[in-house]
């Protein structure tokens, strides 16, 4: 008997309601697989944000809490400080983490709080209808900049991994993507490493996932995956931005 690939134990039986081709559900599955493999489901508490991924709490079969927009890193801080034995992960989108919750993210990172952030970067506000995100790239069209992001008006996007890597606090920062098989497998390795670092008690970890949003981008799923390769990962290069595990 070989290996069976099916829905991870750490996920509920509820069918996911994301749009066809959405990267959120792939990211959910990778987290659940990692939780299964590390056997931490019974110690895990997930934080669902505001945005499309607010539904995460329906899909993960572990304790979950849904917190205000952008505040995942603050709530995770509180939880982890009073219950260090829990494995806490905060799942946040780009508007959540890099716009309204920038301060909470930076300060949790600089305090090197010992939890894991899964950061979904799809360069757009998905749930509210495809408005400009802090990660919308120059020239990219959204519903609030129909002629494309004009940097003179809206400024430049925030590159979260690059920004956080300037801090002393974070232990591990990596940018991955979930637009094709090799990238999905790499993304899982990154998530697993981040959780392992938390288990080892080393400190703040963040995995940024470039994620297709076909509906928000107005393209078919296949084109969305190509867009991640051709445009997004050029502007947001994949790779490890910080890894202090070797030094520690």
């Amino acid at each position: 008997m070989g290996r069976i690939y099916k829905k991870p134990v750490s996920m509920t039986k509820i069918a996911m309601r994301y749009c066809p081709g959405c990267g959120h559900s792939i990211a959910h599955r990778l987290i659940a697989e990692v939780i299964d493999e590390l056997d931490i489901r019974e110690r895990a508490v997930g934080i669902a944000p505001v945005g499309c991924s607010v539904f995460l709490d329906e899909y993960m079969d572990c304790d979950m809490i849904q917190v205000p927009h952008g505040r995942g890193c603050a709530s995770a801080t509180g939880m982890k400080r009073v219950r260090p034995d829990l494995i806490v992960f905060s799942y946040q989108g780009d508007g959540d983490l890099a716009a309204i919750g920038t301060a909470e993210t930076i300060h949790a990172a600089t305090r090197s709080e010992n939890f894991t952030v899964i950061f979904i970067n799809n360069a757009i506000y998905g749930m509210t209808g495809g408005q400009q995100a802090p990660t919308t790239m120059p020239g990219q069209k959204t519903t609030t900049n129909p002629y494309g992001r004009e940097v003179k008006v809206h400024g430049y996007p925030i590159k979260v991994c690059e920004m956080l890597s300037a801090l002393d606090g974070p232990i591990y920062l990596e940018r991955v993507a979930v637009n094709n098989v090799p990238n999905v497998l790499k993304a899982k390795r990154a998530i697993k490493k981040a959780f392992q670092i938390q288990l080892d008690g080393l400190g703040f970890t963040l995995v940024e996932i470039l994620s297709p949003c076909p509906t928000g981008w107005g393209v078919i799923p296949k084109k969305a995956c190509e867009y991640v390769d051709e445009k997004m990962s050029k502007y947001y290069p994949l790779g490890v931005y910080k890894d202090l595990t070797k030094k520690k």
Binding site: M1, G2, R3, I4, Y5, K6, K7, M11, A15, M16, Y18, P20, G21, C22, G23, H24, S25, I26, R29, N180, V181, V184, L185
Partner: peptide
Amino acid sequence: CALCYQVCPEIAIEVEKL
């Protein structure tokens, strides 16, 4: 190879390697 499983957003594919 389960590559279909790896990219399926809905986890609608189950693969068993015999």
